[in-house]
Simulated assay, not measured.
Amino acid sequence: MSNYEARLSELGVTLPDAPAPAANYVPSVIVGDIVYISGQVSQGPDGLITGKIGADLSVEDGVAAARRCAISLLTQVKAACGGDLDRLVRVVKLTGFVNSTPDFTDQPKVINGASDFLVEALGDAGKHARSAVSAGALPFNVAVEIEGIFQIKS
């Protein structure tokens, strides 16, 4: 078990197997020591987390959905690193998309669910640059989708 996975275990998190892409794209691309992870949609053990923040779901629901996206991002990083999560050097940047009503303005609070989790799980390596934007709709009506850029050991 990697050092990062040991910390995740302390937090009660086990990384699932990385799912295959749902269309004509790859889950990750490595360029040098940077890995780009395709957008990960909010999905929990019981399936997709769906709904529009500000109408169907609360900010707290959105925070939980963003946390699930962060877990999926780490799952994809682990897969991109051949199963060795300790190759992760740091989270560079996240771009978070929030399925929200036109008058909803707390997208940063929602994406904090991912940011806070990554810092809790990875320490300083989890600190990152970030964007948090509203989306009128997301695939499968998911609540949140987050893509990430990560630095890894070559």
Rank of each mutant, 00 (worst) to 15 (best):
Y25C: 03
D56A: 13
G148F: 07
F150K: 02
L15V: 05
S38Y: 11
L73S: 02
K52T: 15
D103V: 09
A18K: 05
K127A: 09
C81M: 10
F104N: 10
L85I: 07
Q151P: 11
L48T: 05
L138T: 09
R90F: 14
T95A: 10
D46Q: 14
L88S: 05
G126M: 00
S38D: 06
K78Q: 06
K109V: 14
V26H: 01
I49L: 15
L8G: 03
A20N: 02
V35L: 11
A70S: 11
L48S: 00
K127N: 14
T14E: 02
S154M: 00
F97I: 12
V63L: 03
I152A: 01
T14S: 12
G12R: 06
Y36C: 10
G113I: 02
V91E: 14
V29H: 06
A6W: 04
D106M: 05
F97L: 14
V29I: 04
A143F: 08
Q43V: 09
I49N: 02
A135F: 06
E10G: 03
A22W: 01
K109S: 15
G123I: 12
G83M: 15
T105L: 00
V92T: 15
V91G: 13
R90I: 04
D56Y: 05
G148H: 00
V98D: 14
I152M: 00
R87W: 11
A137Y: 03
P102R: 14
A55V: 13
L88G: 10
A70R: 13
G83N: 14
S2Y: 08
